[in-house]
């Protein structure tokens, strides 16, 4: 149910309810099993709560799927020359995998772990069990072949944050909901008349690069 609920929410632009729901987003990079994981994990990493919308309403999974077709996800900006020698953590990332491969290995690993331990894929588990698994991955306590779980988790979490809080032009932050919860004005980028209004709440809502407002 988690996964299906996620699909519905993810395809909804603002959750106004009355209008017919738009067609759910069809992922380009992720397969069905991966997509279900991504929806479920995003929902735990940024849950909807009293402080604002969650990752699903912000279309974070769509953002991540769209990122996977950019040069970034293929490691085009990373130094990827061999040999790949593992060393102390503080000397940084040394795996031969660009983001796309980290997702492929990481999601398969998370689902395999969930199936072995709980006889269900990640998306079908109860939220508190999902949280435990995510915490285990975050803490590096799982191993997915030669991918330490923390490397996958850090990649996922970084992209989730980007999806929730970047300009909607990239596919996430739907309705500027991420920015609204922070009080971040986005592309307004002109505070000439507010720089010395000390401690006061900025009165204008957020605006995106394409002129969408919230």
């Amino acid at each position: 149910m988690q996964g299906l609920a996620g699909v519905a929410a993810c395809g909804t632009v603002s959750g106004t309810g009355a209008a017919a729901p738009p067609k759910p987003y069809m992922p380009v990079f992720f397969n069905a099993a991966e997509w279900n994981f991504l929806l479920a994990a995003c929902d735990r990493l940024i849950p909807a709560d009293a402080n604002g919308p969650g990752a699903l309403a912000l279309n974070v999974p769509r953002f991540i799927d769209q990122q996977m077709t950019t040069p970034y996800a293929q490691g085009a900006q990373w130094y990827m020359a061999a040999p790949f020698v593992q060393g102390p953590d503080n000397l940084g990332y040394q795996l031969p995998y660009p983001p796309r491969d980290l997702y492929r290995h990481g999601i398969a690993g998370m689902n395999a772990h969930a199936t072995t331990r709980h006889a269900k894929p990640f998306a079908a588990l109860a939220p508190d069990v999902q949280d435990d698994l995510l915490r285990a991955a975050e803490g590096g306590r799982l191993v997915f072949g030669d991918v330490p779980s923390a490397a996958f988790f850090d990649q996922l979490l970084a992209n989730v944050m980007e999806g929730a809080f970047s300009d909607p032009i990239h596919g996430g932050n739907t309705g500027l909901g991420g920015w609204a919860m922070l009080g971040f004005p986005g592309a307004r980028a002109d505070f000439m008349d507010w720089v010395d209004r000390y401690g006061a709440h900025y009165p204008l809502g957020s605006v995106s690069i394409t002129g969408e407002t919230a």
Partner: peptide, 21 residues
């Protein structure tokens, strides 16, 4: 960085590793 980066180590007894990202 895909074209050119540096390698880094904390001391001369270590193997310096590429600054990949």
């Amino acid at each position: 960085l895909s074209k050119n980066t540096v390698t880094i180590r904390n001391n001369a007894n270590q193997t310096a590793l590429p600054y990949r990202r």
